[in-house]
């Protein structure tokens, strides 16, 4: 298992937290919570080591469109980049309902 962390600049306040997904084969869970700092912090724990660059690419893409100030925790069991983005979008949707 590898732990990877990233920070992204963000400014928009988010009011609700959200939890989506399951730590099951090829899937992941996302915990998204409002944060106070001027940036968003992402902590990933993944069962598949050595994919830091791939994670960075996925999150760069996500934060290119998303500007909420949040703390995101991801627990992953080898989800594809597509599944990761989908779960992140579901978490955002749930947090803005």
């Amino acid at each position: 298992m590898e732990q990877i962390e990233f920070d992204y600049p963000a400014k928009r306040k988010v009011s609700r937290r959200a939890h989506v997904g399951v730590v099951g084969s090829g899937d992941l869970e996302v915990l998204l919570e409002p944060a106070d700092a001027g940036s968003s912090h992402v902590i990933i724990r993944t069962s598949v080591d050595g994919f830091r660059d791939t994670w960075k690419a996925v999150l760069d893409r996500f934060f290119a469109k998303y500007d909420g100030v949040v703390r995101i925790e991801i627990n992953d069991v080898g989800a594809t980049p597509g599944s990761v983005l989908l779960r992140l979008e579901q978490a955002v949707e749930a947090s803005e309902q």
Binding site: V22, V23, E29, L31, E33, R45, N75
Partner: peptide
């Protein structure tokens, strides 16, 4: 969000669930 996860899985390299 209370994060009562397994203390035993991470020490064995297994991803826990929150």
């Amino acid at each position: 969000f209370d994060r009562m996860e397994s203390p035993w899985l991470p020490m064995q390299g297994v991803t826990p669930q929150a």
